[in-house]
Design a protein around this nucleic acid. Sequence first.
DNA 1: TTAAAGTCGACAAATCCTATAGAAATTACC
DNA 2: GGTAATTTCTATAGGATTTGTCGACTTTAA
Lengths: 147, 147
Amino acid sequence: MRLSTKGEYATRAVLYLSRRHGTGTVQINEIAHNEGIPTKYLEQILLTLKNAGLLISKKGVKGGYYLARPPEEITVGEVVRVMDGPLAPIRCASEKFYERCSLEPSCGLRGLWLEVRGAISGILDNRTFGDLCKSIDQHQREPMYYI
Amino acid sequence: MRLSTKGEYATRAVLYLSRRHGTGTVQINEIAHNEGIPTKYLEQILLTLKNAGLLISKKGVKGGYYLARPPEEITVGEVVRVMDGPLAPIRCASEKFYERCSLEPSCGLRGLWLEVRGAISGILDNRTFGDLCKSIDQHQREPMYYI
DNA sequence: TTAAAGTCGACAAATCCTATAGAAATTACC
DNA sequence: GGTAATTTCTATAGGATTTGTCGACTTTAA
């Protein structure tokens, strides 16, 4: 029932960019270094997020990435879905990626998976990166370090 | 955030065995056929469940599998953990498979993943296969078909 | 013009899913 | 009681997917 590393890295990267929101572009290297993510792998991930319209990139010297929308308007669920697909444990219990299963009518488990999906989406679709930034700032008064 | 096919097949198989509980041994083939699971793959899965102490097997003619405990005493969470490991989306948010992560102290996401883990385990650890059997019997009055 | 970035494609390694081939154990039957 | 049939058990091999790496290419600011 786990998140792929892609999903994990993506959420970490977007959170990082959220905390840097409004301070211009951020380079892949900086994120990779501070979050302990393999640089080349992170490249692919950020590219996917960009193609999904969540990030904007700038090439060349002083280039980098930044959020396409303010952190308050990006939910964790959105990022996870871009990288990992459905939130639901199995396909036939997904709302946004639903696929019919031949056993569905008599399936004694589908109700349970729907319940799980609901619980997960209830959390991830209602939590924005703005919320996360806020609770970080409350807990640790130290400002963020840049390299 | 999805369940592996192993986890899905295992829960289906255990539910099948739950509905047949008390009727003697059930062959791999019967389960595989009725649940649409590749036979040889199911063999491995049932073996794992047996080694985990959830099932008992009998070799030879008229052999097969049956539950080691009544369905009311087996939770879905237990089966999923045997096959898939942690219920938590990522390792550092797991209770039973916890692994420390170097970024943990400053991690802005761990709280969220803990919340997700709690929601999932709140459902799966409190639902037994006995419960599932009961709600199946309520919805469809037809008895179960055997081959 | 040069160095610093993102972009792209191919490839390597690990894990997941499934199939194949047979060994071991048990029952049934002659 | 021995042989055949049935079923689980074990090991292994191969394809698919995930995870990550490498090198060359493109764009841009200074």
